[in-house]
Simulated scan of single mutants.
Amino acid sequence: MESLVENEQNVRLGIFLFLLIFFGVLEFMIPLAKRQEKRLSQWFTNISITIIDTIAMRVVLPIIAVGVAKYAAENDIGLFNIVDIGYWPAFIMSLLLLDVLIYGQHVMMHKVPMFWRLHRMHHSELGLDVTTAVRFHPIEIIISMLIKMAFVYIMGIPVAALIVFEILLNGLALFNHSNIKLASGLENLLRKIFVTPEIHWIYHSEKPNETNSNYGFNLVIWDKMFGTYTDKPTLDYPTLRQGLPEFGFEKPVGLLELMVSPFKAYKVKDE
Rank of each mutant, 00 (worst) to 15 (best):
S3A: 13
N7L: 07
N10E: 14
R12Q: 15
G14H: 08
F16S: 15
L19P: 15
L19E: 13
L20W: 06
F22W: 09
F23K: 06
L26P: 10
L26S: 05
F28D: 14
I30H: 14
P31M: 02
P31V: 02
L32S: 02
L40P: 03
L40D: 12
S41F: 14
W43N: 05
T45S: 09
I47V: 13
I49W: 10
T50A: 14
I52A: 12
I52Y: 04
R58G: 11
A65G: 10
V66Q: 10
V66M: 10
V68K: 03
V68L: 04
A73K: 07
E74Q: 08
D76W: 05
F80Y: 04
N81A: 10
N81D: 07
V83D: 07
D84I: 07
I92K: 03
L98N: 02
Y103K: 00
Y103P: 07
G104E: 04
Q105F: 15
M108A: 15
M114C: 12
M114A: 15
W116V: 11
L118R: 04
R120F: 11
S124Q: 12
L126D: 13
G127K: 02
G127A: 02
G127F: 10
D129I: 07
V130Y: 05
F136Y: 14
F136K: 00
P138R: 01
F151L: 11
V152T: 07
I154G: 01
M155L: 13
G156C: 07
I157C: 02
I157A: 00
P158N: 04
A160K: 00
A161E: 09
A161L: 03
L162K: 01
V164P: 03
F165V: 03
L172I: 15
L174N: 06
K181E: 15
E187G: 06
E187Q: 12
T196C: 09
P197A: 03
I199M: 13
I199P: 09
H200A: 05
H200Y: 08
H200P: 05
W201Y: 10
P208W: 00
N209G: 09
E210Q: 04
L219C: 09
V220E: 05
I221L: 08
M225W: 14
F226N: 01
Y229H: 10
T234S: 11
L235S: 13
P238F: 03
T239S: 13
P245S: 01
F247C: 00
E250W: 04
V253F: 00
L255Y: 06
V260S: 06
A265S: 14
A265E: 14
K267F: 12
V268S: 09
V268A: 04
